[in-house]
Computed example of a mutant assay.
Amino acid sequence: MNKRKVVCVCSEFEGGASMTTYTGLSPELARSWWLLSATSDNTGRMAGTRADVAVIDLEDGVAPQRKAFARTVARGILEQGPAWIRINDVRSPYWRDDVEALGELSQLSGVMIAKVDSATDIELVSAALPAPVPLVAFIETAVALEAAREIADHPRVCRLALGSGDLRMDLGAEPGSAILDYARSRLVVASRAAGLPGPIDGPSIVNDEGLVQRETASARSLGMTGRLCLDPAHAALINTVLSPTVDDIAAARATIAQLGSDGANATKGSDIPRLRRAHRTIDLASRFDLI
């Protein structure tokens, strides 16, 4: 297996639309990814957000006639502190202007690339960016889904994300269609095979906390470890669902106590896998400051 360790900074905004602070979480661990338009009034709500990552959107969240203004806003944010940016796809007439607007700014934490269809798309963006930063590739078409492993294998990609709305449109599927769970499973397998963390799921399209909870739990059950949100109020809920519970932690500790930290008391073939899972749970709980 191609195992890669991704070491990069993940930010949350604090003290206004332009200021950020390091959370201690790298993109490989980030659970909630708040996607907000650069032209949205919500940029004023960045202060105090519970999202692990706030991403300034230059793509679908911005009307064509406002792209230039959105880039100016994004650049202003980057001049004040670290931020993630989602740029337009490489088949659009906007992506090169998006990249050029980032200039030589050292505060760029990472880039999400919309509608990635191949590793060639990643290569184009990588070559155009002023500095090497982590990239998250959005899988939003049937073509991209078939190329998911190739995209995940690119050394600059730190994570895959599911563009569920656009993929559903491309496939002609209804909301909640089982084919979207197939797509999620494909991304989970491709990510694991490439040595990446679990992928980031698309957002809930209805602003309902019960639905967000159910859909996030379903994504977690498939192996996804992050989720986009369009409302920052959902970030805390997503973080909770994608984190070990009190019961998970207690069960993990009991397993380690039973089997021994190094598995010295293992007697069955299933014991070592259980032990590894327990250690993983404790490690995540520690990284998320739950213990």
Rank of each mutant, 00 (worst) to 15 (best):
A47Y: 08
A47F: 02
G48T: 00
G48C: 03
T49L: 14
R50T: 11
R50D: 12
R50I: 04
A51S: 12
D52G: 00
D52R: 00
D52K: 04
I56D: 01
D57W: 11
L58N: 01
L58A: 02
L58C: 11
E59S: 08
D60F: 13
D60M: 13
D60H: 15
G61Q: 01
V62P: 07
A63K: 06
P64C: 11
R66P: 05
R66H: 14
R66S: 04
F69V: 03
A70N: 07
A70Y: 11
A70K: 10
R71A: 05
T72Y: 13
T72M: 15
V73Y: 10
A74P: 06
R75W: 00
G76E: 09
E79A: 08
G81Y: 12
A83I: 05
W84Q: 15
R86A: 05
N88H: 13
D89R: 11
S92L: 15
Y94F: 13
R96H: 05
R96Y: 05
R96F: 00
D97G: 12
D97K: 06
D97R: 02
V99Q: 10
E100T: 14
A101I: 14
A101S: 15
A101C: 14
G103P: 08
E104M: 03
L105T: 03
L105D: 07
S106R: 12
S106Y: 09
S109V: 12
G110Y: 10
V111F: 07
M112Y: 15
I113Y: 12
I113G: 05
A114L: 12
A114C: 13
K115P: 08
K115W: 00
K115M: 10
K115N: 02
K115E: 11
D117F: 02
D117A: 03
S118R: 05
A119E: 12
T120R: 08
D121F: 03
D121M: 01
D121W: 09
I122Q: 01
I122P: 03
E123F: 06
E123K: 01
L124T: 09
A127T: 11
A128V: 08
A128Y: 15
L129F: 15
L129R: 08
L129T: 15
P130R: 06
P130E: 00
A131N: 10
V133C: 05
L135P: 01
V136I: 15
V136D: 11
A137I: 04
A137L: 01
A137R: 02
I139H: 10
A142I: 07
A142D: 04
V143M: 03
V143R: 02
A144N: 04
L145D: 00
A147K: 10
A147T: 06
A147I: 00
A147V: 02
A148F: 05
R149C: 13
R149M: 13
R149D: 13
R149A: 11
R149G: 11
E150D: 06
I151T: 02
I151M: 05
I151Q: 09
I151D: 03
A152V: 07
D153H: 10
P155L: 04
R156D: 14
R156H: 14
V157A: 09
C158K: 01
C158F: 00
C158V: 07
R159G: 04
A161V: 08
L162T: 04
G163E: 08
D166K: 13
M169Y: 05
M169I: 11
A173R: 10
A173D: 12
A173M: 01
E174Q: 13
